[in-house]
């Protein structure tokens, strides 16, 4: 079961069992966005407070599998207190890590293999534990659900800040 242990690393199981930043912030003033994975029924409610160009608070509610829940918990811990620019950069790095597999497949289909951009996994800290997910393509959507919801929340929040 070597593959399984690569997927279900200790950090992931820890965040699944004891999710960080669990709950909902009062909205407004918080930005509130819901995300769904219609394939497996995972649901996430993300509430986000932006203060002075920084994510001053974030909370996650909803239900889902260990991968979607731990990814949301890891994400909330990683973005809390960060500037919006840093958050956007982190989202980009995380998504490249998650899309390595898909990108490679797409390139092979084109017949023109292109080396995917190298991802500096070290910059991801604990989030690097989710690396094992790319070996299980069906689960990538679980890992990216909270991140896509975060992108939506930022997109909705930023015009209001301008």
């Amino acid at each position: 079961m070597a593959d399984l242990e690569d997927l279900y690393r200790e950090i992931i199981l820890d965040h699944y069992r004891s999710p960080r930043n669990r709950g909902e912030l009062p909205a407004p003033p918080a930005q509130r966005v819901e995300g769904f994975n219609p394939l497996c029924g995972d649901e996430i409610v993300l509430t986000l407070l932006i203060d002075d160009g920084r994510v001053s608070d974030i909370k996650i509610a909803g239900t889902g599998c260990s991968i979607s829940q731990s990814s949301a918990s890891l994400m909330s811990a990683a973005v809390k207190g960060k500037s919006l620019d840093e958050v956007r950069q982190l989202i980009g790095t995380f998504k490249s890590m998650m899309s390595i597999h898909e990108a490679t497949l797409a390139d092979e289909a084109d017949g023109a293999p292109v080396e995917p951009e190298p991802v500096d996994v070290r910059s991801l800290g604990e989030l690097a534990a989710l690396q094992g997910v790319v070996k299980f393509p069906v689960r990538i959507k679980c890992a990216t659900l909270s991140w896509n919801t975060l992108v939506q929340a930022l997109n909705e929040a930023e015009p209001q800040l301008a």
């Binding site: 279900y8 497996c40 599998c65 260990s66 689960r139 679980c142």
Partner: peptide, 13 residues
């Protein structure tokens, strides 16, 4: 309290 998706993943192995 193991999520169905995780059960199915383990069962696949």
């Amino acid at each position: 309290d193991v999520h169905a998706h995780d059960l199915a993943q383990v069962l696949d192995q």
